[in-house]
Design a protein around this nucleic acid. Sequence first.
DNA 1: CGGCATCCTCGAAGATACTG
DNA 2: CAGTATCTTCGAGGATGCCG
Lengths: 121, 121
Amino acid sequence: MEQEIKLDIEPLLCRVEDALSILVGKWKPIILLYLIKNGTQRFSELKRSIPGITQKMLTNQLRELEEEDIIQRVVYPVVPPRVEYSITEYGSSLQPILDTMHQWGEKHLLHKRQKFKQNNE
Amino acid sequence: MEQEIKLDIEPLLCRVEDALSILVGKWKPIILLYLIKNGTQRFSELKRSIPGITQKMLTNQLRELEEEDIIQRVVYPVVPPRVEYSITEYGSSLQPILDTMHQWGEKHLLHKRQKFKQNNE
DNA sequence: CGGCATCCTCGAAGATACTG
DNA sequence: CAGTATCTTCGAGGATGCCG
């Protein structure tokens, strides 16, 4: 198991990486935030809402999130196909992490601006 | 600016990525947790404490964290060189994120085990 | 001791085309 | 509409060697 090394070092804290690994992925945070805020979304809705993402990457990231039970994929057997994605109850347990990160991110933005000012005085 | 796209989508939430970008890096979480838990550490102490990391990567990750004012680097002009790293006050503001992630990570471990069980019944 | 410089590997991410 | 299937690019991370 790959975990052994980490466990040997910090048995109480190393689980940080597990959470991190789920959030890491170029488009995962945006996808999650979008599903949390706007609820169930079709594939094409997500694609339209996330400028710059390719179909391949959207599929890819959605599959990975689904694999971890963070989101749910529902296929309606109609023509043309209709596939809807939504946050699972389990997935919504990620929200405290996202909130904390967002709050920190805003403070960090201010911090960087102050630093920038100082460097130019 | 690269931020524009993200800002257009989720002005209130997109700061998540800023926090994420600071934590992302193969060795950053471990380095941070180690410095938080054990306080000031010499370069060689960190290297010994983190099995598998190369000198290059340790230097690299430390520099990136220093760049964001998360950690502090103090060089003592002695022979042989002595360089000490520690968390800054600002850096310690990351702790709520790390804590939240760790807690979630533990729950996630249980969740995965249950899922594994179900799949084998 | 605590680096830096160089070269290399490998996988995440992107571009593009095709399909039930 | 919601995907696969390929091919390609690019940079994080790793291996190794040298240095004040």
